[in-house]
Design a protein around this nucleic acid. Sequence first.
DNA 1: CTGTTAGCGCGTTCAA
DNA 2: TTGAACGCGCTAACAG
Lengths: 368, 368
Amino acid sequence: MCLDGVTNCVPVMSEGRSVLHRREVSGLTATIDDVARVAGVHRSTVSRALNPRTQVKLSPETTRRVQRAARELGYVPNAVARGLRTNESMSVGVVIPDLLNPIFPPIISGIDSILRPAGYTALVTDIQGGLDAYEVALASLRQRRVDGFILATAQLDEGESFHRLHEQGVRAVLVNRAAASSPFPVVHGDDAGGMREALDHLATLGHVRIAHLHGPEWLSTTEGRRAAFDEWSRRHPEVTVTGSYCGPLTPEGGQEIMSDLLDASPEAWSRPTAVVTGNDLMALGALRALRARGLHCPGDMSIVGFNDMPFADEFSPPLTTVRVPLRQLGIESARLLVQQLHDEGGGGMELTLPVTLMVRGSTAPPPG
Amino acid sequence: MCLDGVTNCVPVMSEGRSVLHRREVSGLTATIDDVARVAGVHRSTVSRALNPRTQVKLSPETTRRVQRAARELGYVPNAVARGLRTNESMSVGVVIPDLLNPIFPPIISGIDSILRPAGYTALVTDIQGGLDAYEVALASLRQRRVDGFILATAQLDEGESFHRLHEQGVRAVLVNRAAASSPFPVVHGDDAGGMREALDHLATLGHVRIAHLHGPEWLSTTEGRRAAFDEWSRRHPEVTVTGSYCGPLTPEGGQEIMSDLLDASPEAWSRPTAVVTGNDLMALGALRALRARGLHCPGDMSIVGFNDMPFADEFSPPLTTVRVPLRQLGIESARLLVQQLHDEGGGGMELTLPVTLMVRGSTAPPPG
DNA sequence: CTGTTAGCGCGTTCAA
DNA sequence: TTGAACGCGCTAACAG
């Protein structure tokens, strides 16, 4: 088709062959009108033939003719136009605190494995830890009319803000981090259970002086684990809790507070013989701090991480850590969101996924 | 405003106060018409007042009035409607082969740091290595009318396909991987230079039997490094190249071909004393294979990786590897794309970023 | 400087 | 079973 050598093709929009020509020249995709013309039917018929839901009301013959025309023209429905009409963008905003934290790729991957088959596209936004970046991201995604959100950025005190969003009709699911009182479903690992497993493991090894190097207090993960830590230590009076140290959930954070801890008690007899860290990145920093003092893990001190981020088993020593089913976290949160988007409820529920202690090389009996 | 207690509010769309009410009840955002009504001007005036480019042509007084009204109503321009009208979605499709490969987060992060300030949103799509998934992703993104692509998935033989896209008016930039003949700009690390540095380093250490464990042949990175490997070995006849082994760029791939290599020459005297791998993941697998045989790195064999992925320095031993400026790769590719989108040319150019050999613990003089 | 008009491409009423 | 008409929210042309 369009074999003639027309060169100065005025962009007449709705006149016979020229539309096809426009397409082949500039790459602009065919519209529904083009398909209608080629199939010899009306636009609305094309729309119906291409939509599985309305397709049943057409004669098979017409359906086939339309679909053949569409295929011939390489017709691709314009998602923007459809979105304007249907008020559904078939996209979901996924907001994460820091893409460079290795726990997020598996979560995102899990999310995607559910959203894509359901017809949704994930718009992943990394806010790099910034609070105002979070606001901007939210605004930008709402402006793009995403159908819902998966938020991995929740802070404990965001409940009120979430309630406002909820009242505005915003659909969302929280993943990994929860808010104190949230109208949105939450999917997270069993922080308390993981902490207990870690402590039981250390106690079994014979540790009696244990510290907790945790993350910022405004995170639900911190709170859950710290509460479990306190609770456990109350039930195990034979174990001395030598303090609870707070720092950012980064290698630098871990390194710094471990250094502080070592400064505070330079003598081995007073120092904790084991620490549980807020996540694996902090554990990594703690390892570095130890190394910097010429101390060894697990010889001089045992370390338990949290999350079992990718490659935690390749560290030196391989990290003993509480495995959180990261990919599954993504899967379940996406499922819950799709459920909401299909008006199948599920609001406000809390899904706690079981965790597993991975015992590896960074824990051993205490020195001496 | 809207203080009256109207309860059964029929959704009259364009009648006075009820629009406001609709908004407060259901969360539907105010439209440009609502703002126009409140500000007492025409829609187009609102549009102009809110668009920095056209704003100059308005009286400051009007501009202020409109902006105040917009703020009061919490007006957020509908990006979907705007996209339909302007035929610009202000979004860019970023297609990557595998999100779980740690080299991609830094690349994506770099891309984002350029796109976001330029007003674009990155639509990151992970094709999980699947070729048909790639086609689907491309179609889906085009259907969403992305303004351009950043492709990290290029295969050597894709030149023709890229030319077709280019002729259709598609804007794109290739990152990390190139195609044999591409109309699109390419940004990648200096594969050949990195390989030479790695080999020089090994030669200096005294290695005379070196192997290359490389990735799939259809990748430009593989080709570039292998060509440099061959070229270098031709110039260094004193060094025996003990073979070139191909496998997937994963830990499993590296583990398997290293096992094969060890099977092929079980005796230490015939075995290569050093290998350069296609990337750090393969290096990781090679390390595992070594360990599985009770061999040590670097004692029995030295290993050089490629990319310097995050945490490669935390492996055991810390990996000697060719650092590719991953984040910069992302930054430059995004820059080039934005340039194209602004019609500032830059098409077809090739940007080769310098790489650095990071000498760490996985290389040492050969045994014996 | 501002208002009017006219679609962007689609899905969804209504009628026939 | 199909066609006609309408409008989603916005911006770009053209007037005035």
